[in-house]
C-alpha cells in the first residue's frame, strides 16, 4: 500500500538540499544590503567554513543571545581584530590538518579604518583566509557616522550637510589599491545588485590557497536614506554610473571588470538617496559637488576601462539575469 505524504511549503523548503549558512528571522532592517550579501556569501561558501565576524551591524543583528542566525561555526571577538582572529583560527586548522576554509567578515569601518592593520598583517603573512568587507560606507551599527569609506559629500551624522559644509569633506579611501599593493592572489569587488557575481567570486576565492579579499557594496536603507525596496536599484545605479567599479585583481593586476552597458549620470545614483539630498539643488556648492562626483565616476570608468564594448557577453545588464543553473558569466 503506497502512502502519500502532503507537505506544506515550509516543510518542503526545510527539506531542500540547498545549503544556507544563515537563517532568516534575524534583526536586520528591511532591505539591508549587508544581510543579503552575508546570506549569499555563506550560501556560496558552503558548510565547511568558520566565520570570524567583526563588531558591527551584521554581528549585532545575527546573534542576540540566546539566539543565533548562523548555521556555520561563527565567532565574534572585537571590532578591529577579525583578520587576526581569522589568522589564528586558520593557523590552528592548518596545524591540525583540517581543510575547513576560514572566512573573515567585517564592515567598512572594521576594514578601512580600525581593523586595517590586522587586515594588512593577515594578508602579508599569507594566511588562507577569505576576507569579506561588507561596504555600507559608514559606521551603521553606531548610528551612521562617517568612515574613510564614506563617499565624498555624503551626509552622515558626523559629516552632516549644512550651510557651511556639503557633507563629508574627504574622498572615499581607495582601499582596493592598497589591498592590491599586497600582491595577494585574488581581490575583487562585488555588489548586491549582482548576486550571481558575488557567488562566482566567493567560489573563486574559496578555491585559492592564500589570502583573498572581497569587498561587497551593500546599501543600507537606514544610513543612505532610501526606501527598503530600493536596495538593489541603488546598488545597480552605483555600478552603472561608474561610482562602484566591479573588478577582479590577481596578484594586484586587473584581470576582469563588469562592463557598464549604458553609462548613467551620477545624479541617477544621488537622487535615490537622502544622504545626497543636499547635492541636488542649483546652489553653486551643490553643482560643484555633483561635478566633482561625476569626475570621480569618470575617473573610475577610465582607470578600470568600465565601458562595455561590442561583443561583451557579460555586462551590467546581462549579469543581473538569472537563468536556471545560475547567472550568466
Amino acid at each position: 500500500m503506497s502512502k502519500t505524504t502532503v507537505l506544506d511549503l515550509r516543510e518542503l523548503r526545510r527539506r531542500q538540499p540547498r545549503f544556507t549558512g544563515m537563517d532568516p528571522g534575524h534583526r536586520a532592517c528591511q532591505g539591508c544590503g549587508q544581510s543579503l550579501a552575508a546570506h549569499i556569501v555563506t550560501e556560496a561558501a558552503g558548510p565547511d567554513v568558520i566565520v570570524a565576524n567583526a563588531t558591527g551591524c551584521l554581528e549585532v543583528f545575527s546573534t542576540p543571545w540566546p539566539q543565533t542566525a548562523w548555521r556555520v561555526p561563527w565567532i565574534h571577538s572585537l571590532f578591529e581584530n577579525a583578520a587576526a582572529l581569522a589568522a589564528g583560527i586558520e593557523t590552528a586548522l592548518k596545524q591540525q590538518g583540517r581543510p575547513t576554509k576560514m572566512l573573515a567578515f567585517a564592515g567598512d569601518g572594521g576594514t578601512f579604518d580600525i581593523g586595517f592593520q590586522t587586515l594588512s598583517g593577515m594578508i602579508e603573512r599569507g594566511h588562507n583566509v577569505l576576507y569579506v568587507c561588507f561596504d555600507n560606507e559608514a559606521y551603521m551599527n553606531t548610528g551612521v557616522q562617517r568612515s574613510s569609506s564614506t563617499p565624498h559629500a555624503a551626509a552622515t551624522t558626523t559629516s552632516p550637510a549644512g550651510r557651511m559644509r556639503p557633507g563629508k569633506r574627504h574622498l572615499k579611501k581607495d582601499l582596493l589599491a592598497i589591498i592590491a599593493a599586497h600582491h595577494l592572489p585574488y581581490a575583487a569587488t562585488a555588489t548586491v545588485a549582482y548576486p550571481g557575481d558575488i557567488k562566482a567570486k566567493v567560489r573563486r576565492a574559496m578555491a585559492i590557497e592564500g589570502p583573498t579579499f572581497l569587498m561587497i557594496h551593500a546599501p543600507c536603507p537606514l544610513g543612505w536614506v532610501h526606501a527598503p525596496e530600493l536596495t538593489i536599484k541603488v546598488a545597480r545605479a552605483g555600478v552603472e554610473t561608474g561610482l562602484t567599479p566591479i573588478v577582479e585583481l590577481e596578484r594586484g593586476k586587473l584581470v576582469s571588470v563588469l562592463p557598464i552597458r549604458e553609462k548613467r549620470p551620477v545624479t541617477d545614483y544621488l537622487r535615490l538617496q537622502g544622504r545626497f539630498r543636499h547635492l541636488l539643488g542649483d546652489d553653486p556648492v551643490a553643482v560643484q559637488e555633483r561635478e566633482h562626483l561625476q569626475a570621480l565616476a569618470d575617473h573610475n570608468i577610465e582607470t578600470y576601462g568600465l565601458l562595455a564594448r561590442e561583443g561583451d557577453v557579460r555586462d551590467s545588464v546581462t549579469a543581473a539575469l538569472v537563468r536556471r543553473g545560475g547567472a550568466i558569466r
Binding site: 587576526a84 582572529l85 593557523t91
Partner: peptide
C-alpha cells in the same frame, strides 16, 4: 593586539 587575537583564534579552533 594581533598576537592576542591570533592565540584567541587558535585556542577556539582547538589548538
Amino acid at each position: 593586539f594581533a598576537a592576542a587575537s591570533v592565540v584567541l583564534g587558535a585556542a577556539v579552533a582547538g589548538s
